[in-house]
Design a binder for these strands. Structure first.
Lengths: 359, 359
DNA sequence: ATTTAAATCGTGTACGCACACGGAAAATAT
DNA sequence: ATATTTTCCGTGTGCGTACACGATTTAAAT
């Protein structure tokens, strides 16, 4: 039922071309010292015989070692999201470490742009074979990326996209699209005359393009076609550092009787949605529809209790996994790779969450 | 930042143990002819030095070839779902073919249990290294599976689970759970006094355990806790072969004025949901909430038009991929594998479907 | 004590490829 | 013409492992 003949190997090509395997090898790897005529003849035979090098024998013979480097935010308590990509990197490493691949994992405090810059420079100096970074700070990224380009080191962007930077790929989500999904979910769950709040819980400076795009996508959804003309949309910006602000702002906008709130919905544009869930619970307003991002443990808890209705997963683990695999396919397997690698926008509920956590 | 020292190889172990590499090899592969004392000494050294065989060199040296076999339904026009697992098989093959793996793909007409049985016997006779099957027919499976057990050939079940069959793994979905997800989606989108229909569109005989479990999960959802006491749940069984039945049954149950239907929902327990969507459209009842299964092209069409609100994906492609990878990890990588490999229950909407189709 | 059989282990070759080395031939310089 | 360089290419060794084969030792049988 399948071809059982043995693979064509380099010596077969050599024999048929009337040269030695060494010459064929030189042709394959473009290491020169081959007469043009011979070269073309060999190439022709390779095509004819459909020769493909055995990647196992190849990596065994060339004791070449590939050093990959990664740079992502620290995954500490304040920033649980970033634990997952690191796990994905590890998983990928496990699958391909036989090929002589190692990964130097670098981290930086999420808000420290200097640390980011410094680590990136360190990585550049170490001249790895390939790099995965979460380019949280666009200034610093734009400054240093040319170094990698000059050195011919391929760079993959993880989670955050920056345009026109010569990175070989972006692995992440389309933020606008995820906003639309959130809009769909709230719109579907509410009836006429609904009142919907978009809550941006911003911690500090910078790095908010994600959030802006999500809000835009969310609003686009209603602007495009699904707009009950009487729908009320309101954006609220909150600094999470100031709990009293959060408290008062929410009370002011969302307080009220149960019947008055039945038809309200909230879209939190990032993973801080559990703050809102906590407040809703405390004020017996859990029935208000609530949609947010990411499977942090706190979020999972409120999802299971029903206070949060839906979470949108960014699939951080898969982001890490795919980033490394992209480098692998590019450098080792010489495969053509897609520049944009968008991960699905997974909709998580109390009922299906079990299948998305853990491995 | 990483260990740069060279891996410990078999000759290192041999030297330290004061034996030859041949002996170490015999110990590793349990091919006997080693004095117990020597054996234990070698094992001890292996543990001490943390030796792990180089799988590349290993597969290169042992020109062993692994023949996998698969048996799934034909993916023809009447059965589009089954095109995808085959693609997943192919994709997995592409990633691991270097290891000397080939796959004999076998197919059978979806309703032909004799063909199924016959193909399975053929596969058993060909004595492959591992097998992936969609055990659609439980009788025939139970009859023939012992043959594989006797031969020591590992079998992976794809999509359909049958208990107590000594298969090394099941790759698929939890049907009950997916029913609960469907229930959640309808319940979330409807208000008090809703009227919900469960529609089973059955083609012919047998193979309906999926459907039954989905319905059960769906009903459980409401029975457990989310039950608006006045909710009306009704099951409708339809034979898809008889269009006139479909027509009349639907008219009888779902006909009515728009206002009377605003609060109705339909759960179709398999991929035939497009039949219902078609009928709803024709009768201007597209606003009735509709949830079904699988990303068939017809279903995609109605999802994009909004007639279908949600589709639940069984991730058929991933099922194929994971099945092969399970065999690979079990046979080649000697990894411990999970017996139950449940795929996430993906919720697909018009807004996020783009990321789930194609590769 | 001698032969025979069994148990145990080392050696050598092969897997397909990468790459260093050096030799022959051709091109250029003297 | 010879000497020198350059171009081109084949040979040989090594990567880490698998396994056939045969060598050596030990035990059993006669």
């Amino acid at each position: 039922m399948e071809n059982n003949f043995t693979r064509v190997k380099i010596s077969d090509v050599a024999q048929k071309a009337g040269v030695s395997s060494g010459t064929v090898d030189r042709v394959i790897h473009n290491r020169g010292e081959v007469a043009i005529k011979t070269r073309e003849k060999v190439l022709k035979i390779i095509r004819e015989m459909n020769y493909e090098p055995d990647i196992l024998a190849s990596t065994l013979a060339s004791k070449k070692n590939y050093r990959f480097a990664s740079l992502i935010p620290e995954g500490d308590e304040a920033n649980l999201f970033w634990k997952s990509p690191a796990e994905g990197l590890e998983q990928a490493l496990n699958e391909i470490k036989h090929f002589g691949i190692t990964i130097d994992q670098h981290f930086f405090p999420y808000f420290d742009r200097n640390a980011f810059r410094k680590e990136l420079l360190t990585i550049a100096e170490s001249k790895p074979s390939g790099v995965v970074i979460a380019p949280v700070f666009s200034e610093q990224t734009k400054e240093i990326l040319p170094k990698f380009n000059q050195l011919g080191i391929p760079v993959v962007f993880l989670n955050t996209q920056i345009e026109n930077q010569n990175n070989i790929a972006f692995v992440g989500q389309e933020p606008g699209r995820s906003g639309m999904v959130a809009a769909k979910l709230l719109n579907y769950g509410l009836v006429q005359n609904a009142e919907i709040f978009i809550i941006n819980i911003i911690s500090q400076l910078g790095g908010n393009s994600h959030i802006l795009n999500r809000e835009k996508g969310f609003r686009d959804y209603f602007a495009l076609s699904h707009n009950p003309s009487h729908l009320k949309l309101k954006t609220i910006n909150i600094n999470v550092q100031e709990p009293e602000t959060l408290e008062s702002v929410l009370t002011q906008n969302l307080g009220g009787t149960e019947s008055g709130c039945r038809n309200k919905g909230i879209f939190v544009t990032n993973s801080k949605v559990f703050h809102i869930a906590q407040w809703l619970e405390k004020n017996n307003l859990s029935f208000i529809k609530l949609v947010g991002y990411d499977l942090l443990e706190q979020n999972q808890e409120y999802l299971k209790k029903g206070t949060i209705d839906f979470l949108i997963s960014q699939q951080p683990r898969e982001q890490g996994y795919k980033s490394i695999m992209t480098l692998f396919n590019h450098l080792l397997m010489k495969k053509q790779i897609n520049k944009d690698q968008f991960l699905p926008i997974d909709i998580i509920t109390k009922e299906n969450i079990d299948f998305y956590i853990n491995h």
